[in-house]
Amino acid sequence: MLKEVCVENFTFVPVAIEKGGHRIELCDNLFVGGTTVSHGVAAKTITYCHSKNTKVMTMVRPRGGNFIYTKEEIEIMQNDITHFKQLGTDGVVIGCLNDSDWIDEEAMLKLLESAKGLDVTFHMAFDQIISEYQFDAINWLAKHQVNRILTHGGPSSKSIEENLSRLKEFVDYAADRIIILPGGGITDMNLNTIASMINISEVHGTKIVGELC
């Protein structure tokens, strides 16, 4: 079971790895769901993690709020992806929607072109897609070589346990085409129970290896 630890800054990275984190998702401003980190934080984290044989997924999101982005914001994200690629990140975490609560395909294709050669996670913007279209979204993302989808399996107002049946549907449907990465409420305390109920290979969380402070 691969444990991806979501960290808000470099301070928690050494502890996360020491406690058993296998991969780091690096972001800023977790209180709004995560945004892009600074050059300095990314550079230090990537260098440190690679010295510990640990991979880094870097969040690329220019602001909090919704996932509908302007042309300028898409350009910002393209530049950030290129920059993080130069720093040596193993992957990026991205996600764009349109005002119909569907994937902004044009924007995503631009970002995926910039991210060519990197691991790509489509983040929890997935949970904002209308539920009846989510299986089509899995198809689209798998077709375009996105590696995984980070999802809570339903509204953030519900606990991860309440969303397990939906998560299992995603996992079964995705099969071996794309990884479903459950997150949002999975901790070292409930991980084994959740893993026994759905067939998952990776998990994500801020407390997936326990408290970091």
Rank of each mutant, 00 (worst) to 15 (best):
H22M: 03
I74P: 03
L112M: 13
I130S: 15
N147V: 02
E73G: 05
G64F: 02
V203I: 12
E113T: 14
I179T: 09
Q145P: 00
R63T: 10
T36F: 03
I17C: 02
V203T: 12
I208S: 03
K158L: 11
R63E: 10
T35D: 03
V13G: 00
T36P: 05
G21P: 02
G34R: 03
R177V: 00
E8Y: 04
K143Y: 10
A125V: 11
K3G: 01
M77V: 10
G65N: 08
E132R: 14
G65D: 09
A43C: 08
M57S: 11
S159M: 10
V37W: 02
F135V: 03
G33V: 06
D188Q: 11
F12H: 09
G20C: 03
T193Y: 10
L30V: 09
F31C: 14
W140Y: 13
R148E: 01
N147A: 12
E113W: 03
E162W: 06
E161D: 12
E132C: 14
I138N: 02
F84D: 06
A107P: 07
F122T: 05
H204K: 05
Y48A: 06
I129S: 09
S165C: 13
I178G: 00
D119N: 13
A174Y: 11
N66S: 08
C6M: 07
Q78D: 15
C27W: 02
V32F: 09
Q128K: 15
H123S: 12
Y173F: 15
K85G: 11
V5N: 00
V41Q: 07
I81V: 12
T47I: 13
A42H: 09
T54G: 04
V209W: 00
E18Q: 15
F135K: 13
G20K: 08
G88H: 15
W140T: 08
I129A: 11
I208V: 14
I129Y: 12
S165T: 13
Y69N: 01
H22P: 00
Q78Y: 13
E113H: 12
W140H: 09
D136W: 15
S165H: 13
D176I: 00
I74H: 03
A16S: 14
R23S: 01
Q78L: 13
A42N: 08
T89I: 07
D172A: 13
D188L: 02
L164K: 05
H152R: 11
N147R: 11
F12M: 09
M197A: 09
L2C: 08
L109N: 14
Y48G: 05
S100Y: 12
I81Q: 08
N163A: 13
I194T: 04
V32R: 08
I68F: 05
M77H: 10
R177D: 11
K52F: 04
G21L: 01
V13Q: 01
A137F: 12
I138M: 06
V146R: 06
S157K: 14
G183Y: 06
T11R: 15
N192F: 00
H50Y: 10
V93D: 01
G117Y: 03
V209G: 00
V37M: 02
G40L: 01
T187H: 08
V7A: 06
S157F: 11
I138W: 10
S114W: 01
N147S: 14
W102V: 15
N192G: 01
K168C: 08
K55A: 10
H144P: 00
Q134D: 09
T187A: 02
G117R: 05
L164V: 15
S131G: 08
L2N: 12
M197W: 00
G65P: 07
S196F: 04
A142C: 02
E25F: 04
S165P: 08
N66C: 01
V41D: 04
